[in-house]
Nucleic acid binder design. Sequence first.
DNA 1: CTCTATTTAAAACACTCGTTTAAATTAAAC
DNA 2: GTTTAATTTAAACGAGTGTTTTAAATAGAG
Lengths: 211, 211
Amino acid sequence: MANRSDTKTRILDAAEKLFAERGFSETSLRLITSKAEVNLASVNYHFGSKKELIRAVLARYLDVFMPVASARIVTLQSSEEGASLNDIFSSLVEPLLDLNQLRAEGTSTFLQLLGRGYIESQGHLRWFITTHYGEHLTQFVKAVADSAPHIPPAEMFWRLHFTLGTVVFTMASADALTEIAAADFNEHNDIEAVIRKVIPYLSAGVSVPVN
Amino acid sequence: MANRSDTKTRILDAAEKLFAERGFSETSLRLITSKAEVNLASVNYHFGSKKELIRAVLARYLDVFMPVASARIVTLQSSEEGASLNDIFSSLVEPLLDLNQLRAEGTSTFLQLLGRGYIESQGHLRWFITTHYGEHLTQFVKAVADSAPHIPPAEMFWRLHFTLGTVVFTMASADALTEIAAADFNEHNDIEAVIRKVIPYLSAGVSVPVN
DNA sequence: CTCTATTTAAAACACTCGTTTAAATTAAAC
DNA sequence: GTTTAATTTAAACGAGTGTTTTAAATAGAG
């Protein structure tokens, strides 16, 4: 074992920044390795392939976020009887913002990566996420369903995917949107402000009575 | 002027199908021309470049849809005083479904293309749409704003982009979602059913009171 | 120090992509 | 029917991609 200031980490840091900004397929390994100031071949040496690098970038965040978010929801469900949808969504805000302590711009990078992942990948990332973090996801889905018992399961399926779309799309284009908002409305939002804006929107949509 | 059964149309038909299914950058000209059974070079001959082909595919739908949708909103605003958000969103359903008369699977193809367009393109499509159909868009935005006067403009800006994200994401993955819904809930939805499901969700989110 | 395994480096490989070229073919005009 | 323009065809170009190979450099163990 021998290395300088960790080639592997340099690659991950450069890759996550570029992936979040430009998407996965629009980011070449040559661009990543030049930004990271490492050799091109070191990606395949340390990660095997570009696909596995993408998974590693996401895993570095998911391994931190998922357990914390899960724990929040567990305590929320055990403490009060009947947590509202707003409570559930809001309980994810702090774990998300804590990612900024992990790395600079951690929160928005993570959310943008998540968005890119769901939009771009034709399967391998969906598979990776559901097999590695499936329990946390089903737990979250169950908590939401319990909070809106008047919504039939099939309807809830659709609404949760509507919600996913809202979040994913918003976060993937959050930078552009905050710029426009600043120019047009003199509103200067950070990622937390956007998150706090979207939660009431989601809660209202998910829980609106059918018919 | 000379041609057989219209090479240009064959290219557009094959391209729109593949673009909707796989996205723009994931669809090569070689795949399009082989499906269309035309020569590779004919794309550049008839359209100039791949970018212009993408715009032509979208324009073929937008030129039909936009004026019709605009007219609907005009009549809606003139007839009754105070159209609801549900009314506005619903008034777009018929123009959307009419696209099935234009071409088989026209509605879902168009919506998926729109989704892909907003997700993928780094500018040239956004520019194309806003410069060619900007008046229709601002008219639509104004109608929505008038229907929810309790929402400040800056907040409405965000909520409309949340809405865009919901629609775009849902439509881009509509095929996959309807398959899952059929398998998991024995629910067999077509594109119209999905549209009718999403409208209440959107209306609730857009109009939910701030704070 | 020496030996061994790990890591870095430069180069080439094999492939796909959008685009262009130049010749052949087809259709229209006169 | 001849001429002219429009279209189709096959081939190649040039640039970019992820990956592999082979050799050099580096670090840790004995």
